[in-house]
């Protein structure tokens, strides 16, 4: 009796098996001395070259920089996670609640535009706006008699800049999914609430927000799965020597050590490590979410 449902999922599952699971045989290079010439299977295992099986993991953990970069990754990621969850939700609520419908539509269209700017461009804009010696903001500050603030090359500010720009870039775009969820709420619920004499805030509090709960938790879990990533492309572009002690993250570190020099084994090993940890985090978050009856599975 379920066969039509199973039939439906066949194409999707084949995709996951072929393009996602089949390549996972490549994870073995985390335990190999990978050589491009020999290929994945023929490259020698680490112990065949007289090294410990955990050589690449050790390489990561013995780096003098590792505690710093792990801390940086977590701080930046958690900051971004909050910035990409709460403000878009508030913005989506504001858009759906306002009585200026036409205006809201225009604003909404504008708000997702930053999503289309690459980080190179955003960095360029930041340099123009926030630069220390001739940035627009600092020119204003100086005109008002203040001291220029080195937003982009001071280790105290850089994390804020990373989180802030990521908020700016994703605000409108992330709010789309909340708006879609709001649009999906059964309006008869609101009508019933109005009849019961509920005010606006109570409707938001008792109808809109609970209905967004499921999507919110789901997004949260997927984001938690990426908490050890931190946003390579952005950080790599914003990184400079004056801020690297607070802005270097795991992925940018691996890049300078590994991919830049094609150390695929090290890259894979660190990736595997991150995946195992993320897996634990996702399982944990999901178990927590289950208490509110909105888990992923």
């Amino acid at each position: 009796m379920y066969w039509p449902l199973y039939l439906m999922i066949i194409p999707g599952m084949i995709f996951f098996l072929v393009y996602k699971y089949a390549p996972m045989f490549g994870i073995q290079i985390a335990f190999k001395n990978f050589s491009l010439k020999k290929g994945i299977s023929a490259s020698p295992w680490l112990w065949e070259d007289g090294k410990a099986w955990f050589y690449w993991f050790q390489r990561f953990f013995r780096s003098p920089a590792n505690t710093q970069i792990i801390a940086n990754t977590l701080i930046i990621s958690i900051g971004k996670l909050i910035a990409q969850m709460i403000p878009p939700l508030i913005f989506a609520l504001a858009i759906s609640e306002t009585c200026l419908k036409r205006y809201a539509r225009v604003i909404q269209t504008i708000s997702y535009l930053p999503h289309f700017l690459s980080w190179v461009i955003i960095f360029g804009i930041c340099a123009t706006m926030l630069g220390e010696s001739s940035g627009v903001v600092n020119n204003l500050i100086r005109k008002m008699g203040g001291e220029a603030i080195p937003f982009l090359n001071n280790k105290a500010y850089i994390r804020g800049v990373l989180i802030g720009t990521s908020l700016w870039q994703s605000l409108g775009w992330s709010s789309i999914v909340f708006l879609a969820a709001i649009a999906g709420i059964d309006t008869s619920m609101y009508e019933a609430a109005t009849i019961d004499g509920c005010g606006r805030f109570r409707k938001i509090w008792y109808i809109t927000l609970p209905n967004l709960g499921r999507i919110f938790v789901v997004l949260l879990i997927t984001k938690v799965g990426h908490i050890l990533d931190g946003g390579f492309e952005q950080v790599y572009i914003f990184l400079n020597d004056r801020v690297s002690s607070t802005a270097q993250i795991i992925d940018t570190w691996v890049y300078t050590q590994g991919l830049g020099k094609q150390q695929y084994s090290l890259t894979t090993a660190v990736g595997l490590l991150k995946s195992v940890l993320s897996c634990g985090l996702v399982l944990g978050t999901n178990a927590l979410a289950r208490k509110w009856d909105s888990s992923l599975w």
Partner: peptide
């Protein structure tokens, strides 16, 4: 969560 990497 688990991705296989570029070359594989």
């Amino acid at each position: 969560i688990f991705s296989a990497g570029t070359i594989p």
